[in-house]
Design a protein around this nucleic acid. Structure first.
Length: 141
DNA sequence: GCCAACGTTGGC
DNA sequence: GCCAACGTTGGC
């Protein structure tokens, strides 16, 4: 199983909103970046990801699970763009902020720190466990 | 609201 | 295939 990080502006689509959609979740649409798309293509059912709030909050607020493999993004006609479906799994009790993540030497290689503009990112197992620990998520799912 | 960083586009 | 121009993202 691999781990990921999904970024969204809470004004546009928040973790609270995803929670209201329940087990079915929703497609992670609107991605128009090849790297982010390729990350989604690599995802498997059951992969877990962090839900990060950008622009406002700047913190990891929740954990999501991939519940559908990459498929065409219905918000565009362009066949190049695909997306997975995700659903909310659980809250992160004390959401780690970008500042805290940047300040943690164990997380200095995180894509979030080094390429903040990539909207769908891979997260290593070590990073996953560390951010879970910081957020009070136990045990790390 | 600004601006730096990055990705994409399109002319050559 | 290069690179300047442009648009977007996201932290500040």
């Amino acid at each position: 199983m691999q781990h990921w990080l999904f970024k969204s502006e809470p004004d546009v689509f928040s973790f609270e909103k995803l929670k209201t959609l329940g087990k079915k979740g929703t497609q992670w649409d609107g991605v128009r970046n090849y790297q982010a798309r390729n990350n989604m293509r690599a995802m498997q059912i059951g992969d877990l990801g962090f839900f990060y709030h950008s622009n406002e909050g700047l913190n990891v607020v929740g954990i999501v699970e991939v519940c559908a493999l990459a498929h065409h993004d219905s918000t565009t006609e362009d066949p190049r763009w695909e997306c997975v479906d995700v659903r909310a799994v659980r809250d992160v009790p004390s959401p780690p902020t970008l500042d805290e993540i940047k300040a943690n030497p164990k997380l200095s290689k995180m894509v979030l720190v080094n390429n903040s503009r990539l909207s769908v990112q891979p997260v290593t197992r070590e990073e996953w466990e560390e951010v879970c620990r910081m957020g009070g998520v136990t045990p790390a799912p």
